[in-house]
Amino acid sequence: MLTIQNLHKAYHTHTVLDQVSLELPQGQVLAVLGRSGCGKTTLLKALAGLLTPDAGSINWAGQSMDAVPPREREMVYLFQEPLLFPHLTVFENIAYGLRVRKEAETHVQQKVAQMLQELELQEHAQKKPAQLSGGQRQRVAFGRAIIFLPRVLLLDEPFASLDAQTRATMQRLFLRLARKYGITALFVTHDVKESLLVGDRFAYMAAGKLQVYTSREAFIADPQTGVRDELAFWSALEQQTPYQP
């Protein structure tokens, strides 16, 4: 279980994280909905150990992560843009975390081949990232992050730069692999639909404050999340122009 208690971070007088607390059981995905600049990225970076919070604590399975360096946290941060190592092939990018952990070459070959199959990227194994499309790059980044089964996956609007169709494919892929590997993840997004699609649990972030909901219904019912407005919009549209297959 990931436990965050009263996490606080401020730059000068501007508070970015305001007493953020949450509990996330293992194998569940917390969808964090929020607008740009609400502190979502800061929260994820603090969890990954890439920046130090001013106060508060981060625990995994009862063990404090506060003094644990990023490389030992096993909490992989996935940037909005798929940051692949440009000089490495798709295969080597995916194998990176395994090589870091000095896994045997036969295991590396086997696991990466399996992951390439999961990601439907077998024929691109020897390509460099520059030769891939945006969606393919994001798939490689995702595969590279989950191949060694980290404790927590921190996704910072990972599909925001993709077109609608690729985005939907990626959302389905994420869901399938998250279920298969029992991934514990914080999935940050500003897209209402995406948050409802990927989340097991739901939270809303605004001005550094995180509100965690007890259920999907509570998340939908809260007017500040904007879910009801979105639903109303699509409902109104449907009434104006009846759906004809």
Binding site: F79, G97, V100, F148
Partner: peptide, 25 residues
């Protein structure tokens, strides 16, 4: 700089990141 951070969160030490990511780039 973000690639360096990415490497760290994937479990690489500063020396490994230097050898395998930064120096080749």
């Amino acid at each position: 700089l973000q690639l360096e951070q990415q490497s760290q969160t994937l479990g690489a030490s500063a020396v490994y990141t230097l050898q395998k990511v930064l120096l080749p780039l």
